[in-house]
Amino acid sequence: MTVLEVKHLKKSFGSIHAVQDISFEVNAGEVFTIIGPNGAGKTTTLEMIEGLVSPDSGEIRFGELDWNNHGNTIKKKIGVQPQSSAMFDLLTPEENLNLFATFYDKARPTEEILQLINLTDHRNNHVKKLSGGQRQRLAIGLAMISDPDIIFLDEPTTGLDPQARRNIWDIILQLKELGKTTILTTHYMEEAEKLSDRVCIVDQGKIVTLDTPAALIEKLTEEREVRLSFLDGTDAAKEVCLFAKDLDSVTRTERKDRSLKLWSTDPENTLYSLFGFTKEKNYHVEQVSIREMSLEDVFITFTGKEWRD
């Protein structure tokens, strides 16, 4: 079931075309990730969907609802964690949560949220005194206080330590278990791969590609890089190299001393034949690996650009 539908969104700020043409659909219960470099237009896209920025053109629908006619109903259904999270600095996390809870008809118990975002120890400190990561977690808590069906998280893990990041991943996975829909932006390919059901890569205000992480990577896997090294020295490597060149699936080889790199369109069978050969010759393989393809390769392939976090 589609809970959110976005069609041909466009937004310019003066001469900057922040969002040029973005369309996608989000299904109930999935984690949908928008990933892209700085300035790609992720925040602008989210803010249009959240009703903060009005698009120059395009259409946004939450099922039957749209911003023009059902603004308040939509606000009750969604929870938002903005990229720069603002809250009342002179109130405590608990007071912030309680205050936000009064804005909604139904709300989750503050206690439960505090535990979920792991801030029970800091419940009585002023927000002003929280660390960046703690603030970020509170911002996520505020987005969840109304128990919304759809949650928008704009870079929830940027600037967090690995521990806190994992913490937030857990929260997102919990939300998914509860059947909530999460729309997430991030800079971390690893995060997108781990958490999302579908990934939308954007660059310069346009969608580069959109699919499940596995499918995106699969699209790339024409040939994969296999590495081997041998205990028996250079001669062994040379001989294996000659053998590999004769295999149909191997397109290219590269040898340096005792190590061998080869590219294969069918790595599984290539390795099977290679190991048959080494067994026969009684060579000893020291290391073997198949390089994993990641979303990073997807990005590089589609945009021709280097990916930098």
Binding site: E50, G51, L52, N72, K75, K76, I78, V80, P82, S84, S85, A86, M87, F88, D89, F100, F103, Y104, S146
Partner: peptide, 16 residues
């Protein structure tokens, strides 16, 4: 200050 910090914007995202 509230506007500069984005607090007004944050409140506008809620049905407050």
């Amino acid at each position: 200050e509230m506007r500069r910090k984005g607090l007004i914007k944050r409140l506008r995202m809620t049905p407050a």
